[in-house]
Structures are given as C-alpha cells and as structure tokens.
Amino acid sequence: MKSATAILALVAASAAGSAVAADYNANHFFAERHSMVRGPYVEFAKKVSEATDGEVNFTVFSGGSLLPPAASLQGVRDGVAQVTYHAGTYTPAELPVANLIGNAAFYNTDPLVMAFASTEFGLTNEAALEEWRNNGVVFGGGYSTSEYVMMCNTPVKSFEDIQGKRLRMAGGAWTRFAEFVGAVPVSIPSSEMYTGLDTGSLDCAVAAADALDSFSLSDVVTSMNTLAIGNYYAGFEWGYNRAFWQSLSPENREVLFDQMAYYLAQHRVEFDADVEKAVTAAKSNGMQVYKPDQALKDALADFVEADEAVLIENAEKRGVENAEAVLEDYKKLVDRWDVLLAEVDRTDVDALAELARVEIYDQLDPASYGTE
C-alpha cells in the first residue's frame, strides 16, 4: 500500500501538470450539511463559477473525503486541494501565530466579532502574512464557531461537579482551562465526540451546541452547561494554494473576495441558527440545561487572566517574535469589531457582508494580494 505522503505527492504532481484547467479541488473535513460547508463551500463554489463565467470551478470534497483534518495544510500547500478549511490546532509548530490568536478565544467570546477580527488579522497582519507565505498558503478568510459549551452525559451544574470530569477539549487553551478547574482534558477530533460520550470515555464534549445535531450528540447527551468556554477560529475557512491563487486574474480574485465577504457573514448567521435549532430540539427531547454557578464563572475569569502569559510564552517558544505585541495588535482588532458590529442587525447577512467588504476586502488590492 502506498504511503499517504506518496499519494499526496502523486496527486500534487497531477494537479501541477494541469495548472491551466478550470476545475479545482475545494476541501473541508466537516460533513456537507454543516454550516461551515453548505454555504461557504457548496454554495460558494456555485457562486464563484457563475461570477467567473466558468473560469474557476471548484469540486467540493467534504467529510474528509479528500484530505483528513491533520493533512489539510500540507494538502493545500502541495496542490492536492486549491482551497481548504484548516483547523490550526492540528499544526501548532507550522502556525504559531495563528495558534497564538486562536488561543485568545476567551478574550471575547462573541463569535461574530471573532470571525471578523480573525479575518482582518489574517489578511493584514505582517506576522500572520509571513506565516501563510512560509506554509505556501494565501489566506482568504477566517471564521468562528458559536460559543463552546459543555454537553454532558451526566449533570455538571457547578464548580464542584466539574472536578475530575473527562472533557473533550480542542487542545491549547481549552486543555489548560480543564486542568485549571480540576477536570481531565481529552484531546480528540470532533468526529469522535459521539463515541466518547456513548462509551463513557467522556463525561462532556466541549464544542458548539450545533453538534447536538451535526454530530448527533443529542442521542448521547442528557445535559448542557451554558458556560461560554471560548469559541474556535484558529486557522482559516479559506486557505488557497499559492500557485493556484497567483494563476488567477485580478478580476477572479476580486470575485473570491466578494464571495468570501458574503459567506463570512452568512456562515455566522447560519451557525447560530443551527445552534438554536439543535438546542431547542434537544430540550424538547429531555436534555436539561444548566447555567454555571458563580464559582465556575469566577474560575473561568481567573483562568483568562492567568493564561495570557502562557499564550505569549508558548508562542515565543515556537519562534514568534514580539508575541506580546502581536497579541495586542489582535486584541485591538477584536475591540474594533466589537464597536463596528454593535449597531448592525446580526441576522442581516447582506448588511454584515457589506460591512466585511467595506472594512476588510475592499482594502486589499486584488492585483497584488497574495503575490508577494
């Protein structure tokens, strides 16, 4: 049997040999019905094809059918996919800047703010841009899950209840939070949450509550604690192969900018709607919902304050220069978007998309962005 590396190399060589073709691969490891795929990839691909008069056609591979989660960064760099979603936690050594800001998820847990702020950061911050270049990627846009909560097969109402509980965590700051409150972090992909809860190897899955539906967790979850344990946005929703991006005309890059602005907004509205729908259905089927007690809320606040020094130290160990300044630059963007989004109708996709265009994508030059 050929190794995964050999297979990637063969596919990459094939892709390189047909660089002038109009058909390209778009990769996402979530299922097609997930809000991060059905709009930002399936609908996006159709809109891009229409707007480029068929010059750019993406075939969407979902559910890990083209690239598994840990290989998506390498896969897009090598040309197996021309655009992909990538969860930065899988590659902390390759993406220390992305993981630095991704682990700052407790600074502001508003998913809309974090989606827009992480997008602007990834497109404009020089440390981030250098990191993308070093990995053979052109950053297209970010994302954010809805707030992470605890979905459990046993009641977790309080700080006392969380002691010793086995919590599925997304790694990084989430792992440290579990340890901070006396729980046991378990680092597994989201695709394994169901099995962990079903077999009892997990007590809770910490993730966005749409997972009650999108990962069928409502079958094995009996209670939920609404403590907002950050939200996930490390990596990118759209990362492009550099050779592919540079082969595009400025007009076609502008089409991608326009569609990414729209689906950055659309995804956030759809994700939150999916959460509300999934929670409502699970509650009607008997799931209990608990608010965190004050001791648990205080513990989270203490953790957020203490962990910032750890974020900076870890980033510096991985080679990030001036990590504290990079983090401060990101926090300024978060604060900026907190203000910009305060007066916008959060259910109006068109208004949110226009804000993303005006404040972010219109500031980029499609003739030069990604060509350095």
Results as ranks from 00 to 15, higher is better:
residue 339 V to N: 09
residue 166 R to W: 09
residue 180 F to V: 02
residue 7 I to F: 10
residue 62 S to Q: 11
residue 63 G to Y: 08
residue 124 T to D: 07
residue 123 L to M: 07
residue 31 A to Q: 15
residue 316 E to R: 13
residue 140 G to W: 00
residue 188 I to A: 13
residue 99 N to C: 04
residue 298 D to A: 11
residue 4 A to L: 15
residue 180 F to T: 01
residue 293 D to P: 06
residue 331 K to E: 12
residue 29 F to D: 07
residue 121 F to T: 06
residue 178 A to I: 04
residue 160 E to Q: 08
residue 199 T to D: 10
residue 57 N to Q: 12
residue 258 D to Q: 13
residue 153 N to T: 01
residue 252 N to R: 15
residue 167 L to K: 03
residue 231 N to L: 13
residue 68 P to Y: 08
residue 68 P to A: 14
residue 313 E to D: 13
residue 78 D to V: 02
residue 113 V to L: 03
residue 341 L to E: 06
residue 247 S to H: 06
residue 136 G to T: 06
residue 302 D to Q: 13
residue 218 S to W: 10
residue 129 L to P: 01
residue 1 M to V: 13
residue 55 E to R: 15
residue 67 L to T: 09
residue 80 V to Q: 03
residue 173 A to S: 10
residue 221 V to F: 06
residue 207 A to K: 09
residue 14 S to F: 12
residue 205 A to C: 10
residue 131 E to G: 06
residue 136 G to P: 03
residue 68 P to H: 11
residue 303 F to A: 04
residue 295 A to V: 06
residue 102 G to I: 08
residue 275 V to P: 04
residue 110 D to C: 09
residue 114 M to W: 08
residue 85 Y to R: 00
residue 63 G to K: 12
residue 335 D to T: 14
residue 25 N to K: 10
residue 343 E to Y: 04
residue 163 Q to K: 11
residue 317 K to L: 10
residue 26 A to L: 14
residue 106 F to W: 07
residue 36 M to W: 09
residue 224 M to L: 15
residue 12 A to V: 08
residue 329 D to F: 08
residue 105 A to Q: 12
residue 188 I to Y: 11
residue 339 V to C: 11
residue 34 H to K: 07
residue 276 E to Y: 15
